[in-house]
């Protein structure tokens, strides 16, 4: 790894200042992707700003029907939280399927969302649940937040502080994991929530997470796995690589959607 200067500010203001003053500074939230890419010299920030020491960054609570998860909350904490399990069991189950136990103990929801890996699990949940991404300067709807693979609405120096998730009536996630990386070869999140019926797909799209209109329309008229039988899932715009062809991924989208509906 190239030399780096580490900062651990106590406040969001100090974090913003450290990011601005640093040399190509990056936020360190859990490091399970960032440190790995730094070791491979794919990222070489001069400064790292660790946000885990900032008050309020870690923790899970509800305010009336809204679940609030601090950005530096780990996947293991989300998976094991009684509050999350009660509010949206599908989200807790999703967190429990990210990587392995050791990775879940360090990786954070804010880190995953800021990175927006096209095969990550959390983006599918946030988009399907119509979540709000809260930063140090504003609130961004998930609809506006995800802007293609590894691309988000975040400005330079903007830091995610929390996510807000309204309680859905039903929600679940089904993932066909790529066996070595445990990322989604295809992951589908289905939700019947305050933002209507939504079906989102991760791992399959050439441009990252997306909503599938055909599956949404079918589920809106009848919430059942059988309702999806007649839906055509096109392979257009889907990834084709050594792990799976586009038509295989298209097939998996429907299978995972049906499994998710059955689990919801």
């Amino acid at each position: 790894m190239y030399p780096v200067k580490y900062h651990k500010p106590d406040t969001i203001d100090d974090a913003v200042a450290a990011l601005a003053a640093g040399n190509e500074a990056l936020v360190l939230a859990g490091g399970q992707t960032l440190l790995a890419t730094m070791k491979q010299h794919l990222a070489s920030p001069g400064d790292l700003v660790d946000i885990r020491g900032i008050k309020g960054m870690v923790g899970i609570r509800t305010e009336s029907d809204t679940l609030i998860i601090g950005a530096a909350t780990t996947h293991a904490e989300v998976a094991g939280s009684d509050v999350v399990r009660k509010h949206c069991p599908g989200l807790a189950a999703l967190a429990n399927g990210i990587g392995d136990r050791a990775v879940r103990n360090m990786g954070t929801i804010g880190g995953s969302l800021a990175n927006n890996d096209p095969a990550a699990c959390y983006p599918a949940a946030m988009l399907a649940l119509g979540a709000t991404i809260v930063t140090n300067t504003r609130q961004i709807s998930a609809d506006d937040y995800f802007q293609g693979m590894f691309t988000t609405a975040l400005d330079e120096g903007e830091i995610i502080t929390a996510v807000h998730v309204e309680k859905p009536a039903k929600a679940a996630y089904a993932k066909f994991a790529q066996a070595a990386s445990l990322f989604a070869l295809v992951g589908v999140f289905v939700a019947d929530g305050p933002h209507g019926v939504r079906v989102t797909v991760t791992g399959a799209g050439e441009d990252g997470v997306f909503r599938h209109e055909g599956l949404e329309a079918a589920l809106s008229s009848s919430w059942s796995a059988e309702a999806l039988d007649g839906v055509e899932v096109s392979e257009e715009g889907l990834n084709s690589d050594m792990h799976g062809s586009a038509d295989y991924r298209a097939h998996l989208i429907k299978v995972m959607a049906k499994r998710a509906v059955a689990a919801a």
């Binding site: 580490y6 651990k8 490091g31 440190l35 790292l48 136990r101 050791a102 103990n105 360090m106 070595a180």
Partner: peptide
């Protein structure tokens, strides 16, 4: 590359991959 787990240790009672954690943190 955080895959094999040969470096797993306990940090404050939780398993962590030591090769994907900065000592200074």
């Amino acid at each position: 590359t955080s895959q094999c787990g040969a470096c797993v240790v306990h940090v404050n009672g939780k398993v962590v991959k030591a090769c994907t954690t900065l000592a200074v943190s």
